[in-house]
Nucleic acid binder design. Structure first.
Lengths: 148, 148
DNA sequence: TTTACTGCAAACGGTTTGCAAAAGG
DNA sequence: CCTTTTGCAAACCGTTTGCAGTAAA
């Protein structure tokens, strides 16, 4: 998305468009990994758009509320991460050595949710699945790996 | 486990046993849901054993390090939760209305991890899966349910 | 011109820490 | 005894908030 499209996306969801907001949405869209508020803040500075950290938090929250972004947490990280909402159902593979996070497209849980619902009487609305391990690069140096 | 056994478990893992420590381990063991540090703290007060909150944190951390407990986080809760480590592979079903957390015993991900490892080159060591929905009691009052 | 947004500084909640005193083995 | 553990208070970190000023529609 270019600057104009980003601005339109912000406006279309019912928010007033500002330089900061479209910049933040652009940063999310360009990043292929979830990012923290602080990372967004720094990326803005790097891009020459100064913003206040609390504004970044408020914007990320607003974008998540409106469905343009997603807020997520990864085990072992006390921060919240945000990503552009591509409307895909996604899971993450987290490297325990270098903390790299990569997205997984496949989801093995459709049938499982049905079964679980039948067994428990719960109305299942979603799930969170993160997979942990060691990436090919780190794998070499970490022969034995504790489970989280 | 009785008091003696709790104390032995603490000592066996390489920690000095104190009244507070075995009490905390006992609280974890008796609870069938994960609990927060604050909850442990209050449970101790209720049980007549006064302890400092930072000691509770330190103890939970130590028990988790030694493998007697597990530390976990649930989406949408900024706190860490702790549970007695029953050495079972477990997942949780979280009610989005009343926040009740119940354990699920089955795990549908064994084969999936193998496949994923083959596809990505990662050494997979574990995963986190939480399922969200509405429990039978809350289900009635929440007909439409947003996905987390 | 009205309403939504921003910056600032201060508060927040959960967690961690440094230190001196206390208790375990 | 020597080491580990504790209580206390203060710091910490990521996040949220109240408010007065600014900008979008």
């Amino acid at each position: 998305m270019n600057d104009v499209e980003l601005g339109e996306a912000v406006r279309r969801c019912g928010l007033k468009n500002t330089k900061g907001r479209s910049a933040i949405l652009g940063i999310l869209e360009k990043s292929e990994r979830p990012v923290s508020a602080e990372q967004v803040f720094m990326a803005m500075r790097d891009g020459g758009i100064s913003a206040n950290l609390s504004t970044v938090y408020r914007t990320l929250e607003a974008l998540a509320d409106k469905g343009l972004a997603r807020k997520l947490t990864i085990a072992g990280d006390s921060r919240n991460l945000y990503e552009f909402n591509r409307m895909e159902h996604r899971h993450y593979l987290v490297c325990l050595a270098c903390n790299k996070i990569v997205a997984i497209d496949s989801c093995p849980l459709r049938d499982y949710e049905k079964r679980l619902s039948a067994e428990t009487g719960y109305l299942i609305t979603g799930h969170r699945l993160d997979v942990y391990g060691y990436c090919p690069e780190c794998r070499i140096s970490y022969p034995q790996c504790p489970s989280p």
